[in-house]
Each structure stands twice: as C-alpha cells, then as structure tokens.
C-alpha cells in the first residue's frame, strides 16, 4: 500500500514538474508605450509593447500570441471584438529557442469610451494551457461624435433654403421682375 501511495505521489510530482516547465516556458511582458496620451479619448491610438521570451530549457514550437481586450466598466463587463480596434491581433513564431525573445508592438485605435483591460496570451504546441502577460488597464474618455447642435440647423435650414428659393421665384413671377 505504501509503495502505491509513494508511486502515486512520485507520479503526481513528476506531472507537477512537467506543468512547472510548461508554466515557466514562456514569459510574456506587456507595457504601454511611453508616448501614449496620458488621458486617451475615442479616436486616439495607443500602442502596447510586449516581449515573449522562452525562459524554459527546451525550444517552444508553433508559438501563437494574441491580444485580448475586456471592458471592465461595472455592469458592462464584456470581451471586446477587436475587429474595428486593431488590424494587428496576433503573431506567430515557428520556433522559439531557449532564451530567445520576440518583441511585438500592438497598435490599437480607441473606438468606444470605457474602462478596459488588455492582456497578451500565448500558447505553444506542447503546452496544454494558455500563458498570459500581466494586465494593463486604461480608460478611454468619451468624445462627442454627434453634435446635435449642428444637425438640427442643417435639417431645418436646407429645406427652408429651398422653400425660400421657391418663394423668391414666385415673387419674381408675380412682380414680373
């Protein structure tokens, strides 16, 4: 019985060692660019830099890293579809040797106001789980995109202008000018 328990513990610890290698195999850092606006608003561009490093002792094959964005406003927590925010959503690396690094730049156009959390995730062919970078939080200020003060005068003014032309024409015809 003791032998079985010891064998089981040994197997589990070996599995743990395997997982530990997997957890430590890729180190991912994430930092906003220093030139980013301190208080960004809708329409601004932000850039994030990440370094994906193989800190393990074996080469990582088929590395895929991608950027994810989550809105974290209370009551509006949701993942964000990056379709309109960024054209640069993922990178791939066929092989990453031990100690080798890949530097990636992630540009992003701010489409909607709110509080956001960005993270870089990566997987390789051998590891059975996702490795992630630390989060970076940022806030996007609302930019007024619809100026009702402009629309109402135009919506009323243009038809009034045409009506004015019609009245002027009628006046000219009546007076024979």
């Amino acid at each position: 019985m003791k032998k079985i328990v010891v064998s089981l513990l040994l197997s589990l610890s070996l599995l743990g060692l395997g997982n530990a290698w997997a957890v430590d195999s890729l180190n991912i850092s994430l930092a906003p660019e220093q030139a980013n606006p301190p208080s960004p608003q809708m329409g601004d561009w932000l850039k994030f830099h990440s370094v994906i490093e193989n800190s393990g002792s074996q080469a990582a094959h088929g590395v895929v890293a991608w950027i994810s964005l989550v809105q974290v406003d209370p009551g509006h927590e949701q993942p964000v579809d990056l379709e309109d925010w960024s054209a640069h959503k993922a990178v791939t690396q066929a092989i990453l040797q031990p100690g080798q690094q890949v530097k990636v730049e992630w540009p992003m156009r701010l489409i909607q106001a709110g509080a956001y959390r960005v993270v870089i995730s990566a997987v390789d062919r051998e590891t059975g789980h996702v490795m992630t970078s630390p989060f970076v939080d940022f806030q996007v200020r609302r930019k007024p995109v619809v100026d009702s003060g402009r629309i109402l005068p135009v919506a009323l003014g243009v038809p009034m202008l045409v009506l004015g032309m019609m009245a002027w024409r009628r006046y000219r015809r009546r007076t024979g000018v």
Partner: peptide
Amino acid sequence: PYVWAVGSSG
C-alpha cells in the same frame, strides 16, 4: 451640409 453635420466630430 448633411455630411458635415453628421460626420463633423467623427
């Protein structure tokens, strides 16, 4: 004027 009014801040 309509294009300007709806798109001026976008």
